[in-house]
Amino acid sequence: MRFEQIIMPTSLDEAYNALVNDKKSILLAGGAFIKLQKRNVNSAIDLSKLDLSYIKVEPTTFEIGAMTSLRQIEVEEELPSALKDSVKHIVGVALRNIATIGGSVCGKYSFSNLITALLALEADLVFFKKGKISLVDFLKSEDTDPDILVKIIIPRVIQSLYTSKQLTYTDFPIINMAISKNDHLRISVGARPMIATLIEDPNLHLSSKELLKDIDFESDLKAGEEYRRALAESMLEDALKEVRTWK
């Protein structure tokens, strides 16, 4: 992507006004994905001076600023394992030092490791204008009104896990999956290759095949539909063995 000027707002108000006043502007987080896009815009609104890079460990929740890098998430001991493990295979340390959680969520990438984990962890998103909205609703929404993601809130969970299969250590996943346990169990399946989705009311007495029967899979260059389903079934079976040991 090419852009003619950089705008460096120091308040969310300033950033939002710049965004709505110029239709040919874009919010710039880590910039890793933006760089790959073949587009020209007038201005890039750099979010790095808005103090949105933080992880707050609260008694019942974690609050993660939108500009927090994937590497910060990876090395923060307190965060749930599903979240930390979801970023570990994303390319390499260098990319994870620049790519952000906000850019990952707002990109709505269907292969996203992080979205799969956040969905299982029951994440809420806080936007500057639209306020709080659940990740589930955000993924379904077709609302294209410009807004700025400020932070992500996840409740503390008792246990969680993340697992994925990719053709090489750092490749895009061909299936990813996350499970979290609180007073209930949440299982999300992503890179189907469509974006992550939840298994409704998962019943641990069912087999992984039965649990996945209403989840759609499709084929793409990396894997066929049947292979993906078989892989997901086997991954879920393994994951459930661990889940059954959770207190």
């Binding site: 950089i6 910039g31 890793a32 790959l36 790095s48 390499g92 260098a94 990319l95 620049i98």
Partner: peptide, 26 residues
């Protein structure tokens, strides 16, 4: 030039950074 290979990596404030995808002014 797509943040995949690591060949362009430099250290910035002791962190490994892919210089092909890091804007100079930053």
């Amino acid at each position: 030039d797509t943040t995949t290979c690591g060949i362009c990596s430099v250290s910035i404030d002791d962190e490994l950074i892919p210089s092909c995808s890091y804007l100079s002014y930053r």
